[in-house]
Design a protein around this nucleic acid. Structure first.
Length: 594
RNA sequence: GGCCUGGUAGUUCAGUUGGUUAGAACGCUAGCCUGUCACGCUAGAGGUCGAGGGUUCGAGUCCCUUCCAGGUCGCCA
């Protein structure tokens, strides 16, 4: 039977004691980090969320207590009372290294099995094991620091938006399914046979309705759900800092949210962020970086060679140009770093982005050895070298494709790959920017129609409204994404606040009036009762925390994350349910049969 | 759904051309140890080599299937 806490009250956290407190009587509690048993001298490192305090038992300790101390093992939960004293030999490595607790009352509150992995700060234990025993993984100081900082970030968000007049309102988790966009998680209704709720992909429509209801400024730390495949920076459930404002234009929304970023970086990391982030139009971002979320911490910008190669003899280039383009990256001084083998790897790399290949040439001293320049005229060669500012020792990488998206995707990804490989990314730099002037629509070849690039409630540019019917491909949105170090950390838009325009937008997206009414009728109806112009944005909290803390996986900043197949290794969910439950929900499950 | 990488002791890993009884470090257990803090010394336990099938005289190693995990493309309004 384990001991109880009876008669003892904790007086302080382990990691807080200092030399100035020598002589005081203290009671501490926590987990056993480490035992060093030297026979008649026993040290126990006791750990809580603040750090470690050394407990000591020696020849002045009653024999029974010494024997009890010798039975202690890793991760036992202890409470210990005694007198704080100065150490005979100090440990400058830890904050409490000058003191130790000479214990006269030891309570073993809970014994512990040997954990499946050591609870140490530095770990290289495989992640699936850590996730199966997440409650043990979360004991590690590194994880505890992460969750403390995440808490500070969330608190900074609530404080900042509160200070600026925003009201936090909870929106529902069980909502109407809207098939536009990502796949919904569905929840069957017991009361309504054959009908379903959906979990929100975002509180989008509710926050717009709150503007219509006159709340003027709303924010929420909102849980969102998307039933899509996972990535290193994507979980099926994630948290947004969700913001909406009335009577605003793009500048208002961007300014207030830049302010939040500046404040949270200052409060949490003590990093000064210069407000008024630069703004890059979508087309410029694509042309220069091949991405709508460019990493601007390094160069390697794309150069358009299309005009130069329009009538060249090389079919791989000229053929692509009819509908697509030829673009290049000049890797300055890359000739030594990029061996033939490395270059071949890059060729394979761009193929994963559907590029047919990667042409390259190394600008060497004695002329050149090239995979493609032999097909070009002297004029074309010289024009290329001039366009990319080629000098001896450079490597020029070229992608040509009939589909511009392939050129952008592959070269955009190649930029990041090269920057990492060549160590071009400065450490501890936070480079913010806005990407603006997004296209309103994106053509979906599978469905043979235009789809909203952002979402169907995003307003077109005011002077382009009529183009949504006449020239959808060249209509731009009042949308903006905040980008940090090549990662989209937030995005938003000025919304449509006019029922007729909203209906026109639905029509342009291929939703007939009846379908639009069935899906979004409540919104159109609400709009009939007076709606302020409004807009907002949402930050991906998990990604923000990840970037602020320099983590590479979103799982590292979530207490209980899911793994790549969207299951939870600790609770083993999802899992089958009883037939009785299914019957109540009017659901029949089809067994998978091969 | 596609592609790539990995799975050997509790953990992290090594394991040669297919060849004797599969090793190391840490952890764990026991004993000794009065100033440790990566404690030390001695001894010990611990393995379905992810699973199934195949080739072979012989498989951790080769082949097939499959499971698990990671990365990525598609997907993510």
């Amino acid at each position: 039977m384990a001991d109880t806490m009876q008669g003892l009250k904790r007086t302080g956290y382990c990691g807080t004691f200092r030399g100035s407190q020598v002589g005081t009587r203290v009671v501490v509690a926590g987990f056993v980090q480490k035992i060093r048993d030297k026979g008649s001298l026993i040290f126990v490192d006791l750990r809580d969320r603040t750090g470690i305090l050394q407990l000591v038992f020696d020849d002045a300790t009653p024999k029974e207590l010494l024997q009890k101390a010798a039975t202690v093992r890793s991760e036992f939960v202890l409470m210990a009372a005694g007198t704080l004293r100065e150490r005979a030999s100090k440990n400058p490595e830890i904050p409490t290294g000058d003191v130790e607790l000479f214990v006269d009352d030891l309570r073993i509150l809970s014994k512990a099995q040997t954990p499946p992995f050591e609870i140490t700060d530095q770990t290289n234990v495989k992640e699936d094991l850590r996730l199966k025993y997440r409650y043990l993984d979360l004991r590690r100081a590194e994880m505890q620091q992460t969750l403390f900082l995440r808490h500070k970030i969330v608190k900074a968000a609530r404080d900042y938006y509160d200070k600026n007049g925003f009201l936090e309102v909870e929106t529902p988790i069980l909502i109407k399914s809207t098939p536009e966009g990502a796949r919904d998680y569905l929840v069957p209704s017991r009361v309504h046979a054959g009908e379903f709720y959906a979990l929100p992909q975002s509180p989008q429509l509710f926050k717009q309705l709150l503007m219509l209801s006159g709340y003027d400024r709303y924010m929420q730390i909102a849980r969102c759900f998307r039933d899509e495949d996972l990535r290193a920076d994507r979980q099926p459930e994630f948290t947004q800092i969700d913001v909406e404002m009335s009577f605003v234009d793009e500048d208002d929304v961007m300014t207030i949210n830049e302010g939040f970023i500046a404040e949270v970086f200052k409060n949490v990391l003590d990093v000064d962020v210069k407000a008024s982030f630069r703004r890059i139009p979508y087309h410029e971002a694509m042309n220069r970086y091949g991405s709508d979320k460019p990493d601007t911490r390094f160069g390697l910008e794309l150069v358009d060679l299309t005009d130069i190669l329009k009538s060249c003899e090389f079919k791989a280039f000229s053929g692509a140009i009819e509908t697509g383009s030829v673009r290049a990256i000049n890797v300055k001084g890359g000739a030594t770093a990029l061996t033939r083998k490395e270059l071949d790897k890059l060729v394979e790399f761009v193929k994963t982005y559907k590029a047919k290949g990667l042409a390259y040439t190394r600008i060497s001293v004695e002329g050149e050895s090239s995979s493609f320049e032999k097909f070009l005229t002297e004029d074309e060669k010289n024009a290329i070298r001039k366009a990319v500012d080629a000098q001896t020792g450079d490597v020029i990488l070229v992608v040509a494709d009939a589909d511009n998206n392939v050129v952008f995707d592959s070269l955009g990804a190649l930029r990041g790959n090269l920057a990492a490989k060549l160590n071009l990314i400065p450490e501890n730099s936070f480079d913010f920017l806005w990407v603006v002037d997004f296209p309103l629509f994106e053509y979906d070849p599978e469905e043979n129609r235009y789809a909203a690039k952002h979402h169907p409630f995003t307003s077109p540019k005011l002077d382009e409204i009529d183009k949504i019917e006449t020239d959808p491909a060249n209509t731009h949105a009042r949308a903006y994404d905040m980008v940090l170090n090549g990662c989209e950390i937030g995005g938003g838009s000025i919304r449509i606040s006019n029922p007729e325009l909203q209906q026109r937008m639905f029509t342009a997206l291929g939703l007939d009036e009846a379908t639009a009414k069935e899906r979004f009728g409540f919104l159109l109806e609400a709009f009939a009762y007076g709606v302020p112009p409004h807009g907002g944005m949402a930050f991906g909290l998990d990604r923000l925390v990840m970037l602020m803390l320099g983590k590479t996986s979103i799982r590292d900043v979530i207490a209980f994350p899911k793994v790549q197949n969207a299951s939870d290794l600790m609770t083993d969910c999802p899992s089958p349910v009883d037939k009785k439950n299914l019957d109540e929900l009017h659901i029949a499950v089809q067994k998978n049969s091969d």
